[in-house]
Amino acid sequence: MDQRQAFILAIVIIVVLLIVFVVSFVIYMRTPAPKGCEKLKIGPKNCEDCDVEGCMIYKERHKEEKKEEKE
């Protein structure tokens, strides 16, 4: 295989994989979550309305809130 063919193949592979990823990503994001799981999200941005008790961010936040209430 000469260099030009390899170059074209490389671009084709990357583009195909990228398209697969983007399409699956968009479909995943657009699919509505099943009932009862709408609030399941993670990350500092979404932590305001998260109620996963096992999560550390959740715990830290609630500890601080409780302390502030006490004071």
Binding site: I13, I14, L17, L18, V20, F21, S24, F25, I27, Y28, T31, A33, P34, K35, G36, C37, L40
Partner: peptide, 26 residues
Amino acid sequence: VYILVIASLVQIVGLFIKKTSPSLYK
């Protein structure tokens, strides 16, 4: 290539779970 494959796989698996099994998704 690997990171694209892994990311697509995760999305596809997630999509599958989202569509078929709410309890697993939870």
